[in-house]
């Protein structure tokens, strides 16, 4: 069977064999909020923002294959609340500096917080002490703003063919590691690499381009995140 019929929020949509729920939804113009998912990369299932109910059970839509007859809840008040809380967890886990971050307005984390109506933090900050690595001439990595989505890892490995990044440690100690005994400048990372520009936040940033577009005129200043998907149909 080539065509698969599934129901998302009461609407019947068609999936192709092998498609995930996320891919099916995007093709149908339905926005399932997501952060670690990036259409050019293999899914990671890290952030859990794209969690939907599949026949009543929570599953990450970026990794879960669509199957005939699935009934999916996506846009519900309960899921909105859970997703907002996950975004907030990421805010308090790291040290985010939105007001003066060069990524602001282009940051997917910030944009999700706005879309979900996150106004004030309701969770305690973890205040972790994290070092910045600005050794590379063209790119820096500031793990304070990292959400451990693993996009840089997948992009470097699967698109750039370089394996510059990887994970290290577990639990709260988990962080992005480098493929070197030294610092970012000792890796093969190039500013033109996919891995250098795929970070959803201001954690991996190409130097000297940060403020080329002024605040107020950036991507998510114009319309909320997800609009491009919703408008496509």
């Amino acid at each position: 069977m080539d065509k698969i019929a599934i129901i998302i929020d009461g609407k019947e949509v068609e999936a192709k064999a092998g498609q995930t729920i996320m891919e099916t939804a995007i093709a149908a113009g339905i926005y399932i909020p997501h952060l670690c998912y990036q259409e050019e990369l293999a899914p990671g299932g890290h952030c859990r923002v794209c969690t939907v109910l599949v026949n009543g059970r929570p599953q990450s839509s970026c990794t879960h294959p669509a199957a005939e007859g699935m009934v999916i809840d996506n846009d519900t008040p309960e899921l909105l609340e859970e997703r907002r809380r996950i975004i907030e967890m990421l805010f308090v886990e790291g040290n985010h500096i939105c007001p003066f971050c060069e990524k602001q307005g282009n940051c997917e984390l910030q944009a999700l917080a706005y879309r979900f109506g996150m106004i004030v933090p309701t969770l305690p900050y973890l205040h972790r002490k994290i070092e910045v690595d600005a050794t590379h001439p063209d790119v820096f990595i500031d793990r304070n703003r990292c959400v451990l989505c693993g996009r840089c890892i997948r992009a470097s490995r699967d698109v750039d063919g370089k394996n510059v990044f990887g994970f290290e440690g577990r639990g709260p100690q988990k962080s992005i590691a480098l493929n070197t005994k030294g610092a970012l400048s000792d890796t093969q990372l190039d500013a033109a690499d996919k891995a250098a520009s795929i970070c959803p936040t201001g954690s991996i940033v190409v130097k000297r381009v940060g403020y080329a577009i002024p605040y107020g005129k950036r991507k998510f200043d114009k319309e909320p995140i997800g609009s491009e998907i919703e408008k496509a149909k």
Binding site: V49, L126, P172
Partner: peptide, 25 residues
């Protein structure tokens, strides 16, 4: 659980650290 979380996903990794802080309070 916080120590043994693999850290893959947000709710387990960050969430268990956060509830510990809340519990402490």
């Amino acid at each position: 659980f916080n120590d043994e979380s693999c850290g893959w996903c947000t709710p387990c990794r960050a969430g268990t650290t956060i509830i510990l802080k809340m519990l402490d309070k």
